[in-house]
Design a protein around this nucleic acid. Structure first.
Lengths: 236, 236
DNA sequence: GAATGCATACTAGTATACAAGTATGCAGCA
DNA sequence: TGCTGCATACTTGTATACTAGTATGCATTC
């Protein structure tokens, strides 16, 4: 009997997981992790979706072992909730957790720009990323801008000699991105405004004004809040 | 043939892993994780120690499956380094990573006390922990104080409505504790001084002075730096 | 004697089989 | 008709068998 079956939540797992291609030359676990994480963040796997190890494993044509590795990491990040011997579901969107993620992001990234205001920037490394952002912002291409945005923040962390801090931010950022995808994907000019935020942050750093840089960064991060409350899924 | 064998680093794994008792009624993975993490932090498993899945599994009388779950988490925290198809070792102590951990801790915890300075403290919840700390500090019992210290910082995070932020801090804190165990375990009066730090932080919060509270917290966290450089292991 | 190619042993990664606990639905009974 | 108890099916957790990639040491060759 096939382990794949219909779930009452009405989520078509076969469709949601379509497009997952596994490179058998690479470790499977991380690939599954990324694929699932992305699908949770962008809403293809909404909160409450049942995650049965055997079923997902079959749909991805892998065994349960590497799948479990991926799930355990997602559980650690709070994106999946497991009740032992019972089952797992995609964690419902949780405003409290979302606010916590913003708090952590803000705390770390404000410190980063403070440090950079003291130590200065590597303008050469910065330039190509800024160009990519500007192009994407002009085209109002949020998907591309989103990628460049990630690189921007990662680079700031790297320049501040705390590259792993950005890793840490990423582990909580999923909760922010989950809201962001619902809130912002359709808002025109969003990229442009974010790009201008970046320029303001950089200018404050260049001026050596740590307080202002931190304030600009905090405003940049909190800007996701100013869009009002998400309508979103039925959960929460 | 037994998988347990002598390693050239001279670490007696049998002795280092002695005392690991697995409760078969609980999930094994987290128990192994805690046991290994603790032994890495306190130096019983020094940097460079080879970690062979099969060998460790045998010594702990568990299979490789839950052991791997534990190892993967430790890899995620940077306490173990794995080279695929080759082998794993305990990550060498890394001053850069240590400084990063301090950076992250400081960023998050300073934000927490800032927030508490605005919102106020739950003195009732705080009292029992403070008493435990004072008793341990008077007795110069650093082990007990260490536990109470964990609870103290966790409670602050909880009162600031960001309990998961403390979880996050803990995931990097291992790198701090690794140094701390070597640096401070024998320093007399250490607990007393840390306790006084806590009181200063709380007083600043009670006064509603976020800047001072953050400064006191930063000094408290950075105090581990003022003990000079660790002699420590051969690595790094 | 030095370098190179190959066989071997060992590692982590993966797949599958097994164990144990939980929910659920149905039968029996008050 | 409503409740209780049990049998069953299904879940995650664990153990073990298998695969494939890497290092190492030895034999061979130049």
């Amino acid at each position: 009997m096939p382990r794949v079956k219909q779930n009452k939540a009405g989520v078509d797992l076969t469709a949601a997981l379509a497009g997952i291609r596994i490179d058998r030359g690479q470790a499977i676990g991380p690939q599954i992790y990324e694929a699932l994480r992305h699908r949770i963040v962008d809403g293809r796997l909404p909160g409450g979706t049942p995650i049965h190890e055997g079923e997902i494993a079959d749909l991805c044509f892998v065994s349960r072992t590497p799948l479990r590795a991926a799930l355990q990491q997602l559980v650690g990040e709070g994106l999946i909730v497991t009740r032992p011997q019972v089952g797992s579901i995609v964690a419902p969107r949780d405003r409290r957790r979302f606010l916590e993620a913003l708090f952590v992001r803000s705390a770390i990234e404000c410190r980063i720009v403070r440090r950079l205001a003291e130590r200065g920037l590597d303008e050469v490394a910065l330039r190509p990323i800024l160009i990519r952002q500007e192009v994407a912002a002009r085209a109002d291409d949020y998907a591309t801008f989103f990628d460049a945005d990630e690189d921007f923040h990662a680079l700031l962390a790297s320049m501040a000699d705390v590259p792993n801090a950005w890793q840490l931010v990423q582990s909580v950022k999923s909760h922010v991105d989950r809201e962001r995808f619902i809130l912002m994907s359709s808002i025109r000019g969003r990229s442009q405004r974010a790009f201008e935020d970046h320029l303001r942050i950089l200018n404050a750093i260049r001026a050596g004004d740590g307080d202002r840089a931190a304030a600009e960064m905090a405003a940049h991060i909190d800007s996701v809040l100013q869009q009002g409350t998400a309508a979103g899924e039925g959960d929460v």
